[in-house]
């Protein structure tokens, strides 16, 4: 049982605050992905959990034990580094066995675990090689095998797939998911790739400028972004945001369409909708088509709405040409509203 609790953790580097008071609880055996743009503090948070960085304030608990004063080796964790950190002077076998030897496990047990994890990661034929004789993908497998061999409560991964080519990434992603689910460990996985995050995570914690903006299941994060940043960061193309003007109590006008919305004393708020959640019809937002991109299964249409860009994913059967005027009807249950000042969902 290894629940991870991060309580009010902050990290300052000199005058720069990399993390502002982070609170996050990760359930036992949960796969948590930290997702965010470069420089938002994902690695810093992961390193604090690992014990490679000390928090400026706050507590880290793993499996009901406060660990922020413990060295990494006493935290029951294993880690996969971004550049793999496969020791160049040791064979693959000794790399995987490294942690086991440090634990002084009997040779028989070491061999059993190395063989088992090597088979799991399909590198059993590479055990005698050195890191310099491996491809990037193979090195990555060794790094994962080394972590799995520890049979840790918690595995931490910092962008483990970012150095692989697209195809290998897809393959490793699926494999990792299976292997980690079977190993019953709690996982924190750092990435800036939203597709990776969506496909792997039980829950995604979206980070922005040293804060966690939202921590929820992939579908929830996608469908119900807690802030404008989440809506625009996740989803490709991103969520559309256009201004809405108050026309009554709980009634708003958006690009010529009047919609029921949240009750607010603000005059203008933001209306947001995913590109795939609109239909072309007789009623809806007034839009002028700028670019049409047929993508096969559907067509991506970029329009002008209220003087701003608006992307819609429409059925490819619809005959649409540049310059056409469209009425785009949003699906009522997919509409989100944001406060323009705090950018939070209303």
């Amino acid at each position: 049982m290894a629940e991870i609790a991060i309580k009010q953790v902050a990290k300052r580097f000199g005058g720069f605050t990399a993390l502002h008071s982070i609170d996050l609880t990760i359930a036992d055996q949960e796969f948590m992905v930290l997702l965010g743009a470069s420089g938002c503090g994902k690695t810093t948070l992961l390193r604090i959990v690992a014990g490679l960085e000390t928090p400026s304030q706050g507590e880290v608990w793993i499996g009901g034990r406060r660990v922020d004063h413990l060295p990494p080796r006493d935290r029951g964790i294993a880690m996969v580094f971004q550049n793999y950190a496969v020791f160049p002077h040791l064979t693959v076998f000794e790399n995987i066995a490294f942690g086991l030897r440090m634990k002084k496990l009997p040779q028989q047990e070491v061999e059993r675990r190395v063989t088992r994890t090597a088979e799991l990661m399909h590198i059993e034929q590479l055990l005698k090689r050195y890191s310099g004789q491996l491809s990037g993908g193979q090195r990555q497998r060794v790094a994962v095998a080394r972590a799995l061999a520890m049979e840790p409560d918690v595995i931490l991964m910092d962008e483990p797939l970012s150095n692989l080519d697209a195809l290998l990434r897809l393959e490793m992603r699926a494999e990792l998911k299976g292997v980690l689910a079977a190993s019953k460990t709690t996982t924190i996985y750092v990435t800036h790739d939203q597709v990776e995050a969506m496909s792997l995570a039980d829950r995604i914690a979206v980070m922005h400028q040293g804060r966690i903006v939202q921590a929820a299941s992939p579908v929830e994060v996608y469908r119900n972004p807690a802030a404008r940043f989440v809506g625009s960061f996740i989803g490709n193309p991103p969520m559309n945001c256009i201004p809405a003007t108050k026309t009554g109590n709980g009634s708003w006008t958006v690009a010529g369409l009047t919609l029921p919305g949240p009750k607010s004393d603000k005059h203008r708020i933001e209306f947001a909708i995913r590109p795939e959640d609109v239909d072309a019809g007789d009623e809806g937002l007034h839009a002028t088509v700028r670019v049409v991109e047929p993508l096969g299964p559907h067509t991506l249409v970029t329009c002008d709405v209220e003087g701003g860009l608006f992307r819609a994913i429409l059925e490819s059967s619809a005959a649409i040409a540049v310059g056409d005027h469209l009425r785009l009807a949003p699906k009522a249950d997919r509409i989100r509203w944001f406060d323009p000042e705090t950018t939070n969902a209303l």
Binding site: R73, N83, A85, F98
Partner: peptide, 18 residues
């Protein structure tokens, strides 16, 4: 020597002397 090697060793249980 890249710092990652020391950190990896640290995470995988090596004492400073090790």
């Amino acid at each position: 020597i890249p710092r990652e090697y020391h950190e990896a060793a640290e995470v995988f249980g090596a004492s400073p002397w090790k």
